[in-house]
Design a protein around this nucleic acid. Structure first.
Length: 259
DNA sequence: ATGGCTGCTTTGAGCAGA
């Protein structure tokens, strides 16, 4: 079972790339962030025509998340939107069960800068996510949290750690929040395996960030212990970032052995 | 030192992203 996450920065613009990527990779589950689409205009027909089902929640202009699942994998079950107990107008979380695996698709707030109100919202949001996930893991021991975390967990996930030190995406409180998720018993699938140095999942559109590999690793797949035991690979696919009109994020994909 | 790109918005300059 191949499960993946991709911040597409507008599904309206990136839908052809998403469909091409699914056909190429044959991913079973793809979590999308920043769809930027209201539910009434979500391209469900095109996705179904490609052999996938979808659960989604969105809004105009900002945020928006979706879970796509290959029809052969069966129904998308027990769909839940948002973080229970955390009222939030921003559509950043959707969860569902596919093939016995609880999939949580998350778009963590960006935070803008460490001295902004948005940063405080990000930290509150992450605390609520952790508390909610603690309970979800009791209900669903086979749980994967996939998405755009907007956190580079360690300096090795940053092209220029000195420049980014204490900046948003890299600050100590954000990294502590990331470790708080690991403390729930989750494992960073990417770090289960030997990986190339200077591996990133996001590159700034400006200043030829991608060509110079000036990036950050901020998109992650965290696995509960039973799933980590089944994980045989985790990769960042940089190919879509090379396309015309790319998202600024690359997809991340983990492979799980049969249970 | 600043902004450097992209997508979006009751179309056009400003926002948000990271």
């Amino acid at each position: 079972m191949k499960i993946a996450t991709w911040n597409v920065n507008s599904l309206k613009v990136r839908l052809p790339q998403v469909l091409d990527w699914l056909a190429l990779q044959q991913a079973d589950v793809l979590c999308l962030q920043e769809t930027k689409l209201e539910d009434k205009v979500f391209p469900l027909a095109e996705i179904e025509a490609a052999g996938y089902r979808a659960a989604f929640v969105g809004q105009k202009t900002y945020n928006g998340v979706a879970i796509l699942a290959r029809r052969e994998r069966g129904e998308i079950e027990a769909v839940e939107r948002g973080i229970a107990g955390f009222a939030d107008e921003q559509q950043r979380v959707i969860s569902a069960t596919i093939g016995g695996v609880r999939i949580v698709c998350a778009y963590v707030p960006n935070g803008q800068s460490v001295d902004s109100d948005k940063y405080q919202y990000k930290l509150r949001w992450l605390a609520a996510l952790r508390d909610w996930l603690a309970a979800e893991l009791e209900k669903y021991p086979q749980l994967a949290l996939l998405g755009d975390y907007n956190i580079a967990p360690e300096d090795r996930d940053v092209h220029d750690p000195a420049a980014w030190q204490d900046q948003v995406l890299c600050s100590a409180p954000e990294r502590a929040a990331f470790r708080g998720l690991l403390d729930l018993g989750l494992t960073d699938a990417y770090r289960l395996f030997e990986q190339p140095e200077k591996s990133y999942s996001w590159w700034d559109y400006r200043m030829m960030g991608f060509r110079r590999n000036q990036g950050l690793r901020i998109d992650h797949i965290l696995l509960s212990a039973p799933l980590a035991a089944r994980c045989t690979a985790c990769v960042i696919d940089k190919e879509p970032r090379r396309l015309e009109r790319p998202s600024d994020h690359a997809p991340v994909m983990a492979t799980l052995d049969a249970a």
